[in-house]
């Protein structure tokens, strides 16, 4: 049960990070940090995982570092949001 809870909360964090990056367009790490409400080291760990899965991409522009949601990431966000709606009907949250 504890493992499931941990996994669910990780999915929730992934969703928060991706939604923050998607809403901002080119999102600065500080914006994602604020929106996802995570300590810097934990956020970077999750961002690295999302990049590894091809859901988030790092771009450098004008000397700044930004994050962009890939098309695969956009699909993932939609799928998780559908799963969230499906789960809510049974009183379960992500």
């Amino acid at each position: 049960m504890a493992g499931t809870e941990k996994q669910r909360s990780t999915i929730r964090i992934y969703l928060d990070i991706l939604l923050a990056a998607e809403d901002e367009g080119n999102a600065k790490p500080t914006r994602i940090l604020q929106r996802a409400n995570l300590p810097h080291d934990r956020m970077m760990k999750h961002v690295a995982e999302l990049q590894k899965r091809g859901l988030l991409e790092e771009v450098t522009s004008g000397g700044g570092r930004f994050y962009v949601v890939t098309s695969k990431g956009k699909g993932f966000v939609k799928e998780v949001q559908r799963a969230e709606a499906f789960l809510s009907a049974f009183g379960v949250s992500l």
Partner: peptide, 18 residues
Amino acid sequence: YYGFRYGKVTGSSFLKTL
């Protein structure tokens, strides 16, 4: 099918059982 599909993406054991 949808329970399986969403269970796969979220790792929810509830959805897998359902």
